[in-house]
Amino acid sequence: MMTTKNISFILLCFITLISACENKAIHPEIEFLASKTTVEVGEEVDFLISGTAETFVIYTGDSSREYEKSYMAVTAGHDIERETITLTEEGFELIKEEGWLEFEVERHNNVATNDSVDYYQVLTDIQNMIDITYLTTEQAQYEVYLVMIPLPNVAKNVVTKYFENQTISITPEGGYAIGESLSRINPQYSYKYSKPGAYQVTLIATNTSNKNYGNGGYNGDRTSSADEYNYGRTFKHINITVVDQIALD
């Protein structure tokens, strides 16, 4: 005989199963075709998409539209929420070559009474910091400050001028490439290339899960951020060759 306790347990399992399914993002099933894969400069190529997804984004592969330079591709595998500050060999050589630090130390020593700084000892201590990873700019500045305590502002500027912020350095020259967002209702797209070349077109179709709430559930967590969702993404690629226009007789 089914008891109230048993019914409650079954309902709880059912609700848990449904919730788990809702928090999984289904990968879209799509087809991606082009009207032509070899076109002339200025000739329109039509991209045909079938299937459904919540969002579609297309990267045509030419300058500033290359998927490999997009924010998604460049930051993949990087903890972009965390700084990593490092002094490289090149940065240390610049400290010596530019002479800025030596000038600041000498200027301090010219007026100092009993807190002079040994430039060469400072240089040796900074050299020992090469390839050490600091998790914040402030942490790196504090470590430099410890080897030149009478010069706190100089220590800050050493990090700003010569240490490398790895978080910033992953940004491509010229900035991130931009994709074109397409209508989810009718996700078709036409494009004309302005220069000859070989281009890889990338289509990204994405579905999003329901929000993954914290222990407080909806009532305790009404904020929203990207990392609170699961994403199901499907990538499709087409290679397009663009040639110079054929001269008319």
Rank of each mutant, 00 (worst) to 15 (best):
N230R: 03
M1S: 14
S194N: 15
T136I: 13
Y142F: 14
A20H: 13
N207W: 03
P152A: 13
I15V: 14
N219T: 09
I149E: 15
T88W: 08
V105N: 00
T241N: 15
F9W: 14
R233L: 10
S194T: 11
E54A: 06
T206R: 09
Y218T: 06
S64K: 12
L146V: 07
D118W: 07
Q121V: 03
I240F: 08
N23R: 13
T75R: 04
E40W: 02
E29V: 11
D221Q: 14
G51S: 06
T124I: 09
E83R: 07
Y119W: 12
I58A: 06
E138I: 10
V57F: 04
P152K: 10
E66L: 14
D244Y: 11
T167I: 02
Q127K: 12
K195Q: 11
E44I: 06
N207Y: 05
V242H: 02
S64I: 00
V158F: 02
Q121K: 15
T206D: 04
K192R: 12
E54W: 03
L11W: 11
N207G: 07
I10F: 15
V45E: 00
A20K: 15
F47C: 04
F103M: 15
T60D: 02
T37W: 05
P172E: 15
T113W: 08
H78M: 01
T137G: 08
T37N: 07
T37K: 10
Y191W: 12
G214Q: 03
G197T: 05
E93R: 00
Y162Q: 00
T167H: 05
T75C: 05
D125F: 07
E228A: 09
F47M: 07
Q121H: 10
T202Y: 01
T241V: 12
Y162L: 01
I26D: 10
F235D: 11
A155E: 07
G179H: 04
S70V: 00
E40T: 00
V74H: 11
Q245F: 10
P152R: 10
M148H: 08
A53H: 04
N23S: 06
I10T: 11
V147W: 01
I130Q: 05
E54R: 06
A155Y: 10
N207F: 04
L146W: 05
I240P: 01
S224P: 06
L123F: 13
D125S: 14
Y191K: 10
L151G: 01
L33R: 13
L48F: 12
Q188N: 15
I58K: 02
Q166Y: 05
E68G: 07
I7D: 11
V242G: 01
I126M: 09
R184V: 06
V74W: 08
S50Y: 09
P196C: 10
Q188E: 15
I49G: 05
A177V: 02
Y176H: 11
F47W: 07
V105G: 00
Y191A: 04
D227C: 07
I149N: 09
V41F: 02
T55H: 08
E44G: 10
N114R: 11
